[in-house]
Computed example of a mutant assay.
Amino acid sequence: MIDFTERQIDIIGILKKHEPITAEQIAEMLGVSKGTLRSDLAVLVMTGQIEAKPKVGYFLSKNKTDRNSQNVWKQTLVKDVQGGVAVTIQKTTTVNEAVISLFLDDVGSLIVVDENQYLEGIVSRKDLLKVTLGNPQATTMPVQLVMTRQSKVYTITPDKSVYDAAKMMVYYEVDSLPVVKPSDDSSSKKVIGRITKTNIVKALIEMSSEV
């Protein structure tokens, strides 16, 4: 059974008093942005706690014993909704080159890999901003000096469920997860893709429109 975060519990509390209600209204009540709530709302819909209707908003599920919604998400695999080729760079890539890649590919973070696409780390927009502010010389630094090392990067395999991916993103407060090839050697992780909050939300919308 999933342990809901404090914010997800707050969302359920708001719906009890104000349903139906839009994501914008919930965000305003919680003092956060609508984008911040996307993964929380996705998890609550997946687990059958709440429902959503276009032009109406979110409301509490009227049939909590109905597990169909949760089962669908547990049966939908990461490989079915993950993005295409992940945006990757080498550890020798300079901070300046990494910043350019971020904007050209319109992503929030870059996956750092070796020449064989094995995970070495991840570098975020925040990491690059912190190192460059007030330090113009930092642009020539290799990203390996500012990236989060492989051992501290949260990953997921393509055979895991979207439900698992959403829980990880919410729990670890990250916007995306590198998708890695399953391996008996836990220290070696070959990057084969990436799944993001946007992937999950799009899949949620598509599935909801089919019901």
Rank of each mutant, 00 (worst) to 15 (best):
M168R: 13
V95F: 10
T93W: 04
G121E: 07
L77I: 03
T94M: 13
A165P: 02
E51P: 00
K167S: 12
M169A: 06
R149V: 07
A52M: 10
A203C: 06
I12Q: 03
Y58F: 15
V95M: 09
D159L: 06
F4M: 09
F59Q: 09
V99S: 07
L77T: 10
M46P: 04
D114Y: 00
K167T: 12
K152E: 13
M147K: 04
D127M: 05
F59E: 08
S186A: 10
V43S: 08
M147E: 02
I100A: 14
D185P: 00
I89V: 15
T65N: 12
S209I: 09
E173D: 15
Y58G: 11
R38T: 12
T5A: 10
V180L: 01
R194W: 00
F103E: 09
T76R: 10
V162A: 13
D159Y: 08
Y58P: 09
S187F: 03
T94R: 14
I122N: 00
L37F: 13
S61D: 06
P182V: 03
D105N: 15
R194A: 00
E97V: 13
K152G: 01
V56H: 11
S176A: 13
T198H: 10
V146G: 05
N199G: 05
G134T: 06
L15W: 05
V81N: 01
Y118P: 00
M147G: 01
V170N: 10
T5S: 15
G108Q: 11
I11Q: 06
V180D: 01
P182N: 06
F59Y: 15
E206D: 14
D106Q: 12
K160V: 04
S69Q: 12
N96R: 15
G57R: 09
N96W: 13
D66V: 10
K130M: 12
I26A: 09
L15M: 07
L177I: 02
V170F: 06
T76E: 00
G48V: 11
K91P: 02
L104G: 06
S176M: 06
R67T: 12
M207F: 12
M1I: 09
I111W: 01
K55A: 12
V43G: 04
K91G: 02
Q82W: 01
V56D: 07
K79V: 05
I26N: 08
K17L: 11
